[in-house]
Amino acid sequence: MSNPIERLGRVLGYRFADESLAELALTHRSCGARNNERLEFLGDSILNFVIADALFSKFPEAAEGQLSRLRARLVKGVTLAELAREMDLSEFLRLGAGELKSGGFNRKSILADAFEAIIGAIYLDAGMEPCRERILAWYQPRLDDLTLDDTRKDPKTRLQEYLQSRRAELPKYHLIKVEGEAHAQQFYIDCEVALLTTPSSGSGKSRRLAEQNAAAAALLALGVEA
């Protein structure tokens, strides 16, 4: 069987000179004091800079707020977890017994943290330019798909601003039910809006996402583009 770090290198498109950095980047705090939290801190800062720089170049006419919203979309935990899954990082994670039993390999926060830690490890291993090159390679399909249309505010914000502009009562969100196991839950939300006779509903894999979808449904019911 091949060395796991060598297999990781093929997945990442990067071969570590110091394999201990890669091992540390994959070690969750549940394993003990020697873990990936410091590398995660470093990787988070590098990622934010590289993505900000890429967006600054891609959209020369974009305002600061538009760039900030695009960056937030690309560096949020959900996106990082998606990238980690695309790389099968869960296969390489080092977790303590408790996290192993609770399905930590699939936990979004753990995957996102490991992704950032890998960035920090590459930076320490080879410097900024190889690190930048890898980040841009991993993100290229997402960067290519971005347009300034993606900078619109989220549905909850737009719904709130719409109601405020009409001096209407703010929306109320009610959790209706939660289905599924802890690692694969589905949340169901009703959004009560004073200008509508019936609540609007939404569902999602998190309460936040379900609320956003319920707000989007309310905007449609109000005749506002969601």
Score class of each variant (00 low, 15 high):
121 A>S: 09
185 Q>R: 15
17 A>I: 11
218 A>Q: 07
226 A>K: 11
116 E>T: 02
67 L>P: 03
144 D>K: 11
84 A>F: 03
9 G>A: 01
18 D>C: 02
113 D>E: 08
194 A>L: 05
124 L>S: 04
123 Y>D: 08
127 G>H: 03
184 A>T: 09
60 P>L: 03
97 A>D: 08
14 Y>H: 10
132 R>F: 09
122 I>G: 07
181 E>G: 05
35 N>R: 00
97 A>L: 10
184 A>N: 15
39 L>N: 00
121 A>P: 11
1 M>Q: 07
218 A>I: 08
1 M>N: 05
64 E>C: 09
104 G>Q: 03
162 Y>N: 10
69 R>M: 05
143 L>A: 01
95 L>C: 09
212 Q>H: 13
47 L>W: 14
4 P>M: 10
115 F>D: 00
167 R>F: 06
153 K>D: 08
144 D>R: 12
10 R>M: 11
153 K>P: 01
111 L>Y: 02
31 C>H: 10
105 F>P: 01
84 A>P: 04
98 G>V: 14
34 R>V: 14
201 S>E: 09
133 E>Y: 08
12 L>P: 13
174 H>A: 14
51 I>T: 02
127 G>P: 03
177 K>M: 11
94 R>N: 13
73 R>C: 04
179 E>C: 10
143 L>V: 01
223 G>M: 06
170 L>M: 14
202 G>F: 02
194 A>G: 03
2 S>T: 06
171 P>S: 07
105 F>W: 03
19 E>L: 01
8 L>C: 06
57 S>F: 13
195 L>D: 13
106 N>A: 13
69 R>C: 04
111 L>D: 00
65 G>H: 11
63 A>W: 00
40 E>V: 01
149 D>L: 12
167 R>W: 05
69 R>T: 10
165 S>Q: 05
179 E>G: 07
97 A>M: 10
86 E>M: 04
112 A>F: 01
56 F>D: 15
140 Q>D: 04
24 L>C: 08
25 A>E: 05
13 G>K: 10
36 N>V: 01
189 I>A: 09
26 L>C: 12
222 L>C: 08
119 I>S: 00
53 D>P: 02
215 A>S: 11
109 S>M: 14
59 F>L: 12
91 E>N: 12
207 R>F: 06
166 R>F: 05
130 P>T: 07
138 W>H: 10
214 A>F: 13
45 S>Y: 00
62 A>L: 03
202 G>E: 06
145 D>C: 04
167 R>C: 03
3 N>F: 06
